[in-house]
Design a protein around this nucleic acid. Structure first.
Lengths: 200, 200
DNA sequence: TGGTACATGTAAGGGGTTACATGATTTC
DNA sequence: GAAATCATGTAACCCCTTACATGTACCA
């Protein structure tokens, strides 16, 4: 239930309306914890009912400004300090890799190359962003740079992995014929790829 | 709707029962695309209704063995070849980083250090797994190694990022007092951290 | 006055998690 | 005979996405 904590975190910095928060979710937070209009308004209502937020002002056009309450701040700090168990990770990309032996080798290579190109584009976008931000020595700059650095390193890792991976597929895969997609037939020993993805 | 494709991919290799598939989701696929019992049995029913699977045998204890059909294979290949738009990514860890200025610097440093240790443990687990698998030159080994390598590189990247990040937090943060969590007050210019996370 | 931005809300449906519920077969 | 394993199914609930629905204020 982290949308709740994202809202508390943003409102802990300054009061805001649903509309204000929504813009943040569509821009700044878009790649960390995106949320839709429907979700934001709904959760603001629930947080208010729960006493973690309160409506501190009502403005023109039905605008409601929300302010975090003491219980809300307590909840935020609890969440920040509690090492909750990591949620299950799903990677559609790795799922595809898992089954890439079902398509022709050149198609598989093209898929990996495209993934690499996409990662490089993401990395370039982040580098440009880093240049455009006037960093200082304050906490916002420090943690902002840390978050941005994660994205840059992840993009770089994905790009180099994809290049490496594409090169792993041999130019001549004629020896694979018959083994491709065909059942290893044995009643349950599982293929190497099965075991390999464990603990990814 | 990738659970569907995970099931088709597994059944494209060999027929299996829901119970068999379930074991795969709890072990081999656990870190690529985990799924629960509830989900697997439900989706197998829906896939059968849709004609992408068929019940090819019924065994003891009500066991049903599912086999992929031609339309099922076609759907699998379509999915493998279609570059669908990437789904939104959510990272609870980065969301916490985003708000780490709300807690004391030593707590923040401890959080990052713990993340690094967890990543190192994952990496070690993958290295051990790699050692234990009898790799060959076949397609299963090739794509299995590629998937595993992704996990190893990601773990290494996370560990080194976490170490770097912890070191970014200055030993003396007394200069941060007052700026921490306090609203920049301005009506919407946004802090550096906001902008920094953009496009992560 | 017409368009854009501001501003909030609801409804339907998909996918996932947890928990409940049941029964057959094998193994010790 | 008891326990573990095999084997399937259902119900409730949560979170998210998309789409529908409505109305106000500002600006050119």
């Amino acid at each position: 239930m982290s949308l709740r904590h994202a809202l508390l975190g943003l409102l802990d910095a300054r009061p805001a309306s649903g509309y204000d928060l929504l813009k943040t979710f569509e821009t700044s937070m878009a790649n960390v914890w995106p949320a839709t209009q429907s979700q934001v308004y709904g959760e603001l209502g629930r947080l208010t009912d729960a006493g973690l937020l309160e409506v501190s002002a009502e403005g023109a056009r039905g605008r409601k400004e929300y302010t975090i309450t003491d219980p809300g701040r307590a909840e935020l700090r609890t969440w920040l300090l509690a090492p909750e168990p990591p949620r299950p990770v799903r990677s559609e990309m790795l799922l595809r890799v898992f089954f890439l032996d079902r398509i022709a080798a050149d198609r598989a290579r093209a898929y990996l190359t495209a993934q690499g190109a996409a990662a490089e584009a993401r990395g370039a976008g982040l580098a440009a962003l880093e240049e455009s931000v006037p960093w200082d020595d304050g906490p916002l700059s420090t943690y902002g740079r840390i978050a941005l650095e994660y994205g840059k390193r992840q993009a770089a890792m994905q790009a180099s992995w994809a290049a490496w991976a594409a090169a792993q597929i041999p130019a001549d895969t004629s020896a694979w014929d018959g083994a491709t997609g065909g059942a290893p037939a044995g009643g349950g020993e599982g293929g190497a790829a099965d075991r390999a993805a464990e603990n990814q």
